[in-house]
Nucleic acid binder design. Sequence first.
DNA 1: TTTAGGG
DNA 2: CCCTAAA
Length: 708
Amino acid sequence: METVVEVEGNDEAKLKECGIRNSTSSLSSPKQISDPVVYKLVRLEGDGRIVPATDDELMEVESLLIDDKCQMHIVADLGQTVGCISNEGSSSGIAQLESLEGLLQSRNKEAGPDKLNARLEYIKEILQKVKEEQRLRLACGSPYCSSAYLIVDSQCCDQHDKLLHIDAKLQCEIPLQETVPSLAPSLSESHFNQSGSFGECSHSSDKLVAGGSTLSVVTTKPDFSKLKGEICLDNLSIKELHETFKATFGRETTVKDKQWLKRRISMGLTNSCDVSVTSFIIKDNKLVKKGNEEISNCMDGSYAEDPPIGNQKDSPTSLVSQLDYHQVVPEKIRLENPNLDDNSGSDDHQTEQRAAKRVRKPTKRYIEELSEVESKESNGRLMNLAKNPEHGLISLKSHVRLVRNVPLDGRTVVTRLDSLGGYGIQVPCVSRVRRSRPRKNFMALLKFNPSGMGMGATLVKKSLGDHSFPPDDGKESRVLKASFTPEHVHHQKLNPSGMGMEATLVKKALGDHSFPPDDGKESRVLKASSTPEHVHHKFIGVPEKDKQFSVMRAIGLGHNTELKCINSSRDSDDNVVTVPTPKGGIRRKHHRAWTLSEVMKLVEGVSRYGAGRWSEIKRLAFASYSYRTSVDLKDKWRNLLKASLAQTPQDNGMNSRKSTGAMPIPAPILLKVRELAEMQAQVLPNLSSTKIAGSTRKNVHEKQTGFL
DNA sequence: TTTAGGG
DNA sequence: CCCTAAA
């Protein structure tokens, strides 16, 4: 998969490609080695040379530049527009993209799981965008002129940027717990830099900027360092294969199975890009891919030719490929072939199995959540694009770290998500407040309770049956939900056992307002708003000492108190559920008064599509009114109907009276409402009841007399 | 998911 | 406006 991303790209991409495929990284520190995937910062010298963080790397990269065919591109292009794609690069990039797409498709066919498909879809989408941008750029001649996404500050070409994004996404989808820690931070940094939201947030960037002209982030795979040149695995002896294996994964293997070795190596090298072994050529001890096209071509048959092997025992390095393997190879087969290769590591085997398992589960969920968020929040392509990757990051992070710094991480994640989501700091703030609230809330209630006891009762009731604390704005609440969602997942994963229990309990205590993590996208305001609350209560207490407290509440001791907490929070944070009306009454905070135009729209909609087609009307006539649900329309129509019926008989008396209070509905509109009602009443019940028809007619008559 | 109807 | 049952 990752390869896919790399393939896609222009020179920058190629650069990365080189790094990965040719096993550029010669990270020597143990820590780095232990991390299968590492994003490294590389500095581009004025002359276009790439200067990695370490000397070793420098050498590596340089040699790569010499060896690889992409050298020319890199040197030339980077030389002048550091990190930007030259036209030449762009065109080739497009070509690569194309082949990449083919690749993706072929993979799509092979990989059964829907998740994979979803991912591929996503990637394709991104690629599409990238490609388009490239074309635009070509047309304009200027690297940035058409960049619809992020105008990245000097340092990275956005192309590369996107690649990274994709990478990030991919990575997160391949949640390698061992892998990510180092990855996430650097990634995020680069993101921040590029999006500009965070200014110079990354120390690393500072460092690099200071040291050299530009910086660029390169993905590198550890332990590939020993591989040099091109390799045709097919021609290697077992011993050679062993060497290669070692170089690739950093450990020995005793497996004698050539096929297996080749497979493992290729997978390891291509980093989960299912490239057939044959796409490698060996040369001077280096392993290199022949070409992108070939790769993509090979893709299709690769698995067919290469029968699945039961024992997946690689170093952690190849977890990525593991993932693919697991996805592609039916569970059955895997189970049926327990140990094709014996000794070299039943340990590894199990470990990996476990890894794969624990890895995959969260992924799906996360993706769902993320996609949901995306679809909801995306304000435009720009944001969208910038965001997606970010989500990836988030998921990454949570996957990796959830084990410990929950709160800390959670916040970070939220914050970041938010900033990229284009919603300012709102979300994070809210979330923080919510999180810290549980303890205080308790006391806060009394203070905040504006209307005294009576009110309190009302509130309690509401909280029980109606968790509508929404910021009165559908959008906003949705944002909230979105922001919380990840957290929710996060926590759940974090503490599956204990947490789950508590969550359940709390839920019950609350009356189980089935807080659906993946509730329908459109989730009505109500639900959206309630979600955060639930999350809050479910998870907040857990990580620490609050546990007891929450448990208590959950059990019921705090039933009321908890509710009150919610209320108070609403009072303080969200301006209460209800709001006093000038008239003296109380209405729901997020009640949206129907404007005349809305009413007219509604009437028109009904006349056009018919009463009852609320969803249609909603969709077509109220598309822009996100806060009006089809139910709302229906309700309003019902009211209108009532009003129209009530008003007509007794003339304006009613009307005038009404006008005093809420918005007066103009008689003409009521008239129309009535007409429509009758028309439809006639049309529909026509068949069945004459009674209705009679009454309708009567009504018609009345109305007509009344108004004409 | 949408619609209809009750609260 | 909210909730829920039914389709």
